[in-house]
Computed example of a mutant assay.
Amino acid sequence: MVQLPSSLPTVDFAKFGDGSSQEAREIGRQLFTACREVGFAYLINTGIPQEQVDGMFSWSGKLFTLPMETKMKAPHPPEGRKDRGYSGIGREQVSQMVFDAEELKAIRHGKFPDFKEFFEIGNESSKRIQNIWIPEDDFPGFRAYAVNFFNTCREFQVSKLLPALAIGMDLPKDFFLHYHEDAENKVRLLHYPEAPTSVFESGEKGRIAAHTDFGTGTLLFQDDCGGLEVDSPSNPGEFMPVPPVPGTVLFNIGDFLMRWSNDTLKSTLHRVRAPPRKDGDNGVTKERFSIAYFTVADRDKTVECLPGCFGPDKPKKYEPIKAGEYLNMRLNALY
């Protein structure tokens, strides 16, 4: 049995089925409540096999031990919107709703650089942007495994996650599916290298500063290192630890869906910090791995305030916007 902490709500998909039962409606209600009140939830019984998650972590570990010249055979393009391939340490710096060029420059070269590297994989069938792979001869088997993992996450998204959210919001079960037909999602394999504990304590290096995600939502898988913290819903400004729990998937709302819902749903600040110094660690903070599956709406779809999220006492806050226009604005601010 999965032992869950009490810091975040838990949504159990075991009895969701095809989404037509009373149990499915209750699951949808629980998911909506979690997204409205906290913006984060542990998901269990998703149908994503733990052994497949473990396998993806194993491939990630192998990937980041490859020589730099091998990893750079699949370089992330200079544009943030072309989010595929390998990105080295310090290349991306998280910014929170900052778009001014000078402010972004200060963030990228400031005191607290994000100390991480990552590899991004999108829909293998995408016509908009192609995946960038390390040649098969250099890393045999990785491409096939990563594509299969992407497809498994996508299957949960379309068969359970988005329908449950729609049901919870009293929308037609397939409402969100019509806006996510192109599968323009991505898997990000993240590696936070080990480093002397002193550089984290001094602020010379960080892992990821406080930020919100900016798509529809994120599925997050953690290793056993820990370090993820979420802004407390009861005490804003205080961050609470969100420990890894085998057999679970973390889900959180992104800024795009928060905007789409007229701020009914909550995109919550979160960060990754290096764990505190421990006896026996020899002054070195261990490396950390995580895997994120980012869900985004079809780029050519225009969205406006969701039904049920506005009225005489809650006017619309935002103008209609194309998903691609919003996403490009946010992605380009990272690079």
Rank of each mutant, 00 (worst) to 15 (best):
S198G: 04
K73D: 03
K322M: 05
K278F: 06
I321H: 01
R299E: 12
T10A: 14
F149L: 07
R154N: 15
H76P: 01
E23I: 07
L331W: 14
W59V: 14
M329P: 01
L189N: 08
A166H: 03
L269K: 13
P275F: 02
D298A: 02
P113W: 05
P113N: 05
A292F: 05
N328C: 10
E136F: 05
V284R: 10
R108K: 15
W260L: 13
L306F: 09
P78K: 08
F175P: 04
P113A: 07
G88E: 07
A333W: 04
P315E: 12
N123W: 05
K301T: 07
R84K: 09
L4V: 10
V38F: 10
G47K: 07
S290I: 05
A297K: 02
R259I: 08
D137W: 01
Y42C: 07
E155Q: 14
T152V: 14
I121L: 12
Q50G: 01
D281I: 09
P49G: 04
T212E: 06
G226H: 04
V2N: 09
G61N: 14
L306K: 02
L165R: 02
Y318N: 09
S159T: 15
E304H: 10
I48W: 01
R91P: 00
F13S: 02
A209H: 11
Y86H: 02
P236Y: 01
L171K: 04
G141N: 00
F139Y: 14
H270L: 06
N185W: 11
T248Y: 03
L4S: 01
A146W: 02
V38L: 10
L265F: 12
C309L: 07
Q222V: 12
L331P: 08
A195H: 09
P9G: 08
L334P: 00
I89N: 09
E120C: 11
E304I: 00
M72N: 14
M72Q: 14
D231A: 04
Y318R: 09
G206A: 13
A144R: 13
G55A: 10
Y145P: 05
S232R: 02
A323D: 03
E23S: 15
K286H: 07
H109S: 14
E229H: 09
D170G: 04
P233G: 06
D231K: 04
N262G: 02
A297P: 08
D100F: 11
R128Y: 13
D279R: 13
K71F: 04
G311Q: 11
N131A: 04
I321T: 11
F99M: 11
I48Q: 03
P172W: 02
E26G: 00
